[in-house]
Write a protein that binds this DNA or RNA. Sequence first.
DNA 1: CGCCGAATTGAAGAGATTCAAACTCAGTGG
DNA 2: CCACTGAGTTTGAATCTCTTCAATTCGGCG
Lengths: 237, 237
Amino acid sequence: MIRTISPNRASFGRCSACTVRSFSICGALDQSDLVEFERIARHVHLAPNEALFTAGQLAQSVHNVAAGVARLYKLLPDGRRQVVGFALPGDFLGMAPSDRYSFSADAVDSVTLCRFSREAFTHFIAQRPHFLIRINEFAARELMLAQEQMLLLGRRTAEEKVASFLVGWRKRLAHIGDERQTIALPMSRQDIADYLGLTIETVSRTLTRFEREKMLIIVAGGVRLLDPGRAAAMAAA
Amino acid sequence: MIRTISPNRASFGRCSACTVRSFSICGALDQSDLVEFERIARHVHLAPNEALFTAGQLAQSVHNVAAGVARLYKLLPDGRRQVVGFALPGDFLGMAPSDRYSFSADAVDSVTLCRFSREAFTHFIAQRPHFLIRINEFAARELMLAQEQMLLLGRRTAEEKVASFLVGWRKRLAHIGDERQTIALPMSRQDIADYLGLTIETVSRTLTRFEREKMLIIVAGGVRLLDPGRAAAMAAA
DNA sequence: CGCCGAATTGAAGAGATTCAAACTCAGTGG
DNA sequence: CCACTGAGTTTGAATCTCTTCAATTCGGCG
């Protein structure tokens, strides 16, 4: 079984010692900003599958993931689900174009986050252009990922989708310092299927085939990539 | 044939008289800001199918669409294309998480835009928090649209995709003041197909069926929605 | 009028889904 | 200690939606 995804001991209550700060929006805050920022932050722990917020709810808070993985998704009335993203430590969940959440979010595994009242957060950023710029950069990155996901959903085959997912997920894990040989997959097959616009059976079959073809080994809680080059090639750019 | 999409006579050279300002990022600028903003703007006209920029190029400019429709897309090495969005008057094309464009954009019909050097633009916004906040709001809306598109691409049927597209496109046209009975579709069937993750044949067949079922009438350059309620219901929320 | 790209229509085929069943494995309790 | 349980996953077979390939029609324009 693979360890949970979290930078070794993210410290809370003390932003200045927070291990995810450098790759979160807070990285743009200096020491004095941090002190004030900490005053409006509330640290929250969530058990697996607990909800951060639900689509349609009044968007009273913004969040910063400190540890664990969150699943962001939208539902159709008949229950079909599309996972629009997985949030990792350092990711910011805040942008809302209206006063209500446009998607739902809940914890995949154990999640820790910094929660801010939208009001206090809005007030805080309004006087800090450098912080606004940082948030903008994060939004831009988010948007780019969304566009890549559109390309995946609209134009890639099942095989390419699964390969792309593994490659992209590995890259994101590496970005937050998780460089283990085995790629941790804390989310369920159903989560992956709903992220890739496939069924759980297709995801399972595809992974099994990859294993038969010696591209990877399926282990509890993740996969071990034996042939990253082949996976990358299969992802089709 | 349907008229091109552009708020009646968008004026250029004079931001203060620009008809799309209220629903563009510039809406956050006051009279004095506008004067300086205008100084760094260059007005550009593009003929149908001319490129605004191409994925991979150095991102030296940011753009604001003033008139016409632009198509934003990504390509796979083998030529498969995913249209990630259509930009309408008032839309801002600027967010780039790196120094290179992550997608391509070109004119669907005749397009007019305000072009800014990234450098000058970055300098301009850095000292105007209210403007940054406005850009943030636009980014948030963009991201929300992207997430809805992911839901469409991953979980909707062909029929639902086409219906959703028509309903959503009509709503966007209404938002910029185009409330004609007939929905203008300046883009080709191929563009629509690449936007919805379908083939051109499926789009054509679906529209034809909608027409047979008296939901709409196909006209040159667009469709006339006879039964918006049914279209909305078919879009499945 | 006749050309040419775009769009439509038809028939056959493929990839992914659906439905169904078997398997795995961690947790539970006899 | 090990059988029992149940959720999650894997595997199999049949089906279906959408695609592919091919041909025809439409519509603007010289």
